[in-house]
Design a protein around this nucleic acid. Structure first.
Lengths: 209, 209
DNA sequence: GTCTATAAGGTGATAGAC
DNA sequence: GTCTATCACCTTATAGAC
């Protein structure tokens, strides 16, 4: 029974910590806030995870493993290449939309103390090569215009992530939307638009062989 | 003489504060660090700017005015539309490259306490309408494929900013480049590539009227 | 395992001499 | 205007009762 309760509390703490860390960053997060979020006492945090730093490390690794998601596997199917892009954009946007603070959290922390956090990334393996090979294959086949796979991949990811991450900025400067409904609609439209934008760009015109 | 020295110190402090705030964010910045960076004493910070919050407000506004740059005026010229895009991408990438931490700083702070910072933005006027009108005009003329001006603008900005901002993330997961030279080269290539990517996407193919 | 109370150290801010 | 010394508060972390 003790064991059961133990696991539950530990999980509760990690989930709470994740929420607070992702939202406020390591520097802005408060242990008290995490304790409140988890519905337990502050001292208990230190009982389970000696220090804020240790707790952060665990959360950070967990978050990384979620953010580099399985969605990339889409490229490992035998769908039409353009359909892969459409599906990837749709699902990735969905994911980012559900976790809007996640990319910035990773970037912000990674930029703040790269030397320290790099070690935490050692444990995470990203299966990227087959995507690049997949893209290169399409270029070689002549299905799409020549482009470095890495550049294409970064383009797609940029078009997905940035508009979600930069919501407060774009919204403030360009839309002035108090309730945020307009922005939600703006992002909804992008589920189709981004894929079209990318495909239009790499698709060869009729005159090209 | 007092006045002269005064201005110099004030400027020194603001520059130092800008450097530290932009790099570490409001929560992560330390007044001691700013004092060191400015080569003065911590108490002097409070003599010039009562509090950390006040100093931050000044820096934040200053930074905003730099980040929403005059480069947008490019769209107010009578160049060919595609050349405007090429020029915009080149200059904007140049700017972001020189201030890689700037966009994320703005986004991070704006996301952390939107209600509080919105007031600081009231003073900043963004001259955006003429860009949107410019894009819409091209669509109406039939020069480019139909696209909502706002979406096109966000696409271009995303392709410029995100790869620079996300350098630590992309570099860590996809490149594993210790020295960072490869990434610099990667970004250099984008000065042409991004514009081509965008133009290819919105350019009509021969069969389209 | 979980709590209350408290220690230990850091950080923003002020007082007061020069 | 600029400095040293110091305060007051906040936050992480620990001690000890239950």
């Amino acid at each position: 029974m003790k064991a059961k309760k133990d696991i539950n509390t530990e999980e509760k703490i990690i989930e709470a910590a994740k929420k607070v860390f992702v939202r406020h960053g390591m520097a802005g997060a408060r242990m008290q806030r995490i304790a409140d979020e988890a519905g337990i006492n502050k001292a208990l945090l230190h009982y389970y995870f000696r220090s804020k730093e240790k707790l952060f490390a665990i959360v950070f690794q967990k978050v990384i493993k979620e953010a580099i998601p399985q969605i990339v596997r889409i490229f490992d199917t035998d769908m039409h290449f353009f359909d892969k892009i459409r599906m990837f954009v749709r699902e990735y946007l969905e994911f980012i939309n559900k976790n809007p603070y996640l990319p910035m959290f990773i970037i912000h922390e990674l930029a703040s103390r790269p030397e320290h956090l790099k070690e935490l990334l050692k444990t995470v393996e990203v299966d990227k090569d087959f995507i690049f090979e997949d893209i290169q294959r399409e270029v070689d086949k002549g299905t799409i215009r020549p482009i470095e796979p890495m550049q294409l991949m970064v383009n797609i990811i940029s078009l997905c992530i940035f508009p979600v991450v930069a919501k407060p900025m774009i919204n403030e400067f360009f839309i002035h939307d108090e309730k945020g409904d307009l922005y939600a609609q703006f992002l909804e439209e992008r589920k189709e638009l981004v894929a079209d934008f990318v495909i239009n760009s790499i698709k060869k015109s009729e005159s090209e062989s």
